[in-house]
Design a protein around this nucleic acid. Structure first.
Lengths: 233, 233
DNA sequence: GTGCAAACTTGCACGTAGTGTAAAAAAATG
DNA sequence: CATTTTTTTACACTACGTGCAAGTTTGCAC
């Protein structure tokens, strides 16, 4: 065979095994998504996915521990990218701003398209809720790790609570922004829709940074930000 | 038969069938907890639980959809009580204070003892993580419902985001406080330990109310400083 | 190339999960 | 007691997830 490519774009050598594994992995998720589109959530088995991906049932379970896990890889890759963006931010930047910036970088069609499709296809199905929650929680742990590095937590101090609560809240607000966006726009990936997503993410982080005090959340009828036009929903 | 008790504390008549159902339900969770203690998480089957509870395997699945669900009933009852406490708070009270007060009411041995035991027994097991996340998320939905009632959300307005983000953050902070408490004190239910739990809950809500801006969260029930303007926009 | 060791895939088998179904048992009702 | 309704139970069935022992592919050295 020819020598390993000298024009490798990444440091690690992409061996044949790695490529094959990545290819089958992708084939599995593609097959799972296709079945999700055609048959709907919960109406197809692991054997069907494996069959459609051209592998055996046993091999499917070598890659994913369940059918849900195969679908959730979409969420995992998105959140993985988010964490990478977060780690790129300067360490001296406040965590909230870093989170906001990291989320901004992902509010483009390429990144959110698979996520949006998965969301719309499994919107009212409790089947995905499970693995989805796990994915978000996994992301929370990553944010926790990043935050802990920056805050330099003292072993027995009260910083533990600070970092835990901050990481969880950041995830919750990001989740909230996405939920609102999906409920408003569905799978709409137009530039205006994505702009709205970005604004929602900004607003959510701002709410968190302001301690949810930006508006008097008593029963007072006073409204905030008189929202120019667009009463149509 | 004897007439329905006139001293019934609840409006609904506790018929024989209701009592039996409640008894078997309790027997199942007791059996599941006992097996969890003796065999450890993941090392017992649904049939064993049913056997130990004196019922058939099929009946077990009539009550719970999985072994995890049987264990998670502990978490559900705790969170159910928390929600009830939350609903008891006056509607004009800020949500953060209501949440704090509701959690205070549950920081007593009676309520947290089963939760603490379940936590310590399944601490490093991914088996419970699943249903536990679901339980928390279910609680989040309840908090969301309460918050939406109070905030009087306008259909197309930005209040959706506010309520979603607030409910999620409150849950995250409550979760964070409990996680820190468990990691510090384990299953310690002494008065000092519970006092620390209460303080952690207070601090967590204070952090949220202060927008994670003040790092001096060693204070007691002090008022937080009003949050400055939101980050650059 | 040949040979070898490591990895990956595959088929098989096994225990378990969860559900549909119909019959039996128990409780409410007349 | 006879009934009607609800609950439990036994049975069967599909699917899940995993251990195991093959077979197959890849990497590496010679």
């Amino acid at each position: 065979m020819t020598a390993p490519s000298s024009t490798a774009d990444t440091a690690t050598v992409p061996s044949r095994r790695e490529l094959n594994k990545a290819a089958t992995r992708q084939a599995i998720t593609d097959a799972a998504l296709a079945l999700l589109r055609t048959k709907g959530p919960g109406n197809f088995t692991a054997e069907e996915i494996a069959d459609s991906a051209g592998i055996s049932r046993r091999t499917f379970f070598n890659y994913f521990s369940s059918t849900d896990a195969a679908l959730a890889s979409v969420v995992h890759t998105f959140l993985h990218n988010a964490i990478q963006q977060l780690r790129l931010r300067p360490a001296e930047e406040p965590v909230l701003e870093s989170a906001q910036a990291a989320l901004m970088a992902l509010a483009d069609p390429k990144a959110v398209a698979p996520l949006a499709e998965l969301f719309t296809l499994t919107q009212h199905s409790p089947l995905m809720a499970n693995t989805e929650l796990q994915a978000w929680d996994h992301c929370r742990e990553q944010v926790f790790a990043v935050a802990r590095e920056r805050v330099a937590v003292t072993p027995g101090g009260e910083d533990e609570l600070y970092v835990h609560a901050l990481a969880g809240s950041v995830i919750s607000c990001g989740k909230a922004a996405m939920e609102v966006w999906f409920s408003r726009r569905g799978a709409d990936l137009s530039p205006e829709s994505l702009a709205e997503l970005r604004q929602l993410l900004i607003d959510a982080m701002a709410l968190l940074g302001a301690g949810f005090n930006s508006r008097s959340h008593t029963m007072g009828p006073e409204r905030y930000t008189p929202a120019p036009a667009s009463p149509a929903s």
